[in-house]
Amino acid sequence: MAEQGQDGRQHGRVALVGAGPGDPDLLTVKALRLIQSAQVVVYDRLVSREIMELIPASAERIYAGKALGHHHLVQDEINELLLTLARSGRDVVRLKGGDSFVFGRGSEEALHLARHGIHFEVVPGISAAAGCTSYGGIPLTHRGLATGVQFVPGHLREGKGLDLRWDKLADPDTTLVIYMGLQSLPETSAELIKAGLPCDTPAAAIENGTTPRQRRVIGTLADLPERTRAAGLQAPTLIVIGKVVSLAGELDWFMTEGGGS
């Protein structure tokens, strides 16, 4: 529904919608309603095909995906695209995997819209950290095993390593969840061990979490890089490091076509 913006023109509305980690049953009621009523959907690479099938045929689809080393649209272009679409008077859903405010750059897009007088709303999604670990049989916290959680990005900077405070991350009483961390896993393992985290700390990698294509590899901080390589895991893969991973065998409730580890 179009509404008057600060410049006096009729604008469409923009909803920043978290699609969750992949299973369409994990969408919120509000997310599903907005997806099915959208006139335009601007979607990312990590939105699962099962969720894409929920978009009505009448809606225009615009791909704005980003992969390591290849961006279909850079972030500034996405910001401007959302602004242009809203000014056209159409209702827009900006669909992102997981939660748009957890390593999703949704806040940057919201700020751009707000600074140009465009009405927007944010619909939280189940984050990859919460969804993939739950479907992987790994609690983020557990009494006696983990008193806290740290979320960090695993992207390698071009030509450089990860820019992280390894001394702060190497906490044996904390669960460490690394987004987009498959490529940088060898460096992550080495740096955490160097910073004092025991090399036998349980660790897991979860590929395509919450979907029928989910695969899970369990190992230790020291051997997980080789295990994931041998298994041929691909992005999107979430890395989980901490004592809570030791519960994965007993809590492995989610049966998948591809099997697990």
Rank of each mutant, 00 (worst) to 15 (best):
E3W: 09
Q6M: 14
L16A: 05
A19E: 08
A19K: 03
D23Q: 05
I35Q: 11
L46M: 01
L46C: 02
I51L: 06
I51T: 15
M52S: 08
L54C: 08
A57E: 15
A57W: 00
A59Q: 13
E60H: 03
G65Q: 02
A67M: 13
G69T: 08
H71S: 10
E77G: 11
N79Y: 02
L83F: 14
T84S: 13
V92F: 13
L95I: 06
G98S: 11
V102T: 07
G104A: 03
E121C: 11
V122P: 12
I126T: 07
G131P: 07
S134E: 11
G136K: 00
P139W: 11
T141W: 06
L145Y: 14
T147F: 00
H155N: 10
H155W: 04
R157V: 01
G159T: 03
K168A: 14
A170I: 05
D173M: 08
T174L: 07
T175S: 15
V177K: 04
I178Y: 04
Y179Q: 13
A190C: 09
A190Q: 14
L192S: 07
L192C: 10
T201Q: 08
A204E: 08
I206G: 14
E207A: 06
G209W: 00
G209S: 03
T211Q: 14
V217Q: 04
A222W: 00
R227M: 09
A230K: 14
Q234M: 13
V240I: 12
V245E: 12
A248Y: 00
A248T: 07
A248M: 06
E250G: 09
T256P: 10
E257Y: 07
